[in-house]
Design a protein around this nucleic acid. Structure first.
Length: 292
DNA sequence: ACTCAGGTATTAC
DNA sequence: GTAATACCTGAG
């Protein structure tokens, strides 16, 4: 990876292989990035508003400083990870993962903020993406800090636990969260009252961090693993959602049956890069409507 | 009217 | 431990 400022003070990132912003932002790992009419993606991250555009092998970032980029966003975009090495380690396992990695070229696993990720994936349960994005946006407008007006739209950061603790059940119900509203209240209350710093979970083993996450209401196996994978740097988990379930059923059925559980199969099969493999498989399955 | 959407909590064996 | 069932909401 190489980066520099161009003559318009935009940050240019190159030497990261073939680029595809859609494969980063449309694969279900994040909910606060939107495609503008220009085709560029605008997102709110770490109380900054960023605009990304792409060429075949460059990502171009506008509206943040070089200092912010180096201090926060290199890690957020996982720019120091060599994806060609990850792909190489899993692509020859079978034809399906090979197709999936080719299909999802340019995909990157974002390192997201844990509280935002936890709340977002609690909302995601038994829900659909447009509604998930919409309610997260409403929560940010209502309880998060105003950041700036940018190209005709006002942007708000995702609320901190303290900011979200100001929300009442009645208020949340009006945002269209459905029955998940009380999970948000419970989770925020637990974080505040017990003084939980989710960043600390990064230091725990995957198993221990997962055990702690499942203590939150509305957090089960799948949601906890999404939080581990997308915000706590645990790449050995493999969230099994409806799409991955279909893949296991339609493509890996015979293999899975040799093990005592799908989880055991996945851990043995994909090993340390299970989380990356999951992301390619999920994206490929959903975009191509495998089994559906 | 009815199903579906990145599942989880609760209840009942 | 595991299987069955209810669950907010609104778009299609």
């Amino acid at each position: 990876m190489r980066y520099f400022l161009d003559n318009r003070k935009r940050i240019i990132i190159t030497d990261i292989g073939k680029v595809n912003l859609g494969h980063i932002f449309e694969n279900g790992q994040c909910f606060r990035w939107n495609k503008a009419e220009t085709g560029n993606y605008i997102g709110v991250v770490n109380e900054k508003v960023l605009e990304l555009s792409e060429t075949e092998n460059e990502i171009i970032i506008e509206n943040i400083s070089m200092n912010d980029f180096e201090k926060y966003f290199i890690e957020y975009f996982d720019f120091n990870t060599d994806y060609s090495a990850i792909i190489k380690s899993i692509e020859n396992l079978d034809e399906y993962i090979n197709e999936a990695t080719q299909f999802g070229y340019g995909l990157r696993m974002l390192n997201q903020e844990p509280f935002e990720t936890l709340i977002s994936f609690i909302i995601s349960a038994n829900n659909n993406i447009p509604r998930i994005k919409n309610t997260i946006e409403k929560i940010s407008i209502q309880y998060g800090k105003f950041i700036m007006d940018y190209k005709g739209k006002s942007y708000y950061g995702f609320p901190t636990p303290y900011e979200l603790s100001k929300a009442s059940l009645e208020e949340l119900r009006e945002l269209g969260l459905g029955y998940r509203d009380r999970y948000l209240i419970d989770t925020t209350k637990k974080v505040i009252e017990e003084g939980i710093d989710l960043q600390e979970f990064k230091k725990m083993s995957t198993k221990e961090a997962k055990r702690k996450l499942i203590e939150f209401k509305g957090v089960g196996n799948k949601v906890s693993e999404c939080v581990l994978l997308f915000s706590l740097e645990k790449y050995d988990v493999f969230p099994i959602d409806t799409w991955v379930k279909k893949i296991l059923e339609y493509f890996y059925k015979n293999e899975v049956e040799k093990y005592d559980s799908p989880e055991t199969f996945l851990k043995n099969y994909f090993e340390l890069n299970a989380g990356y493999a999951q992301q390619y498989l999920f994206y490929y399955a959903r975009e191509n409507k495998i089994g559906g």
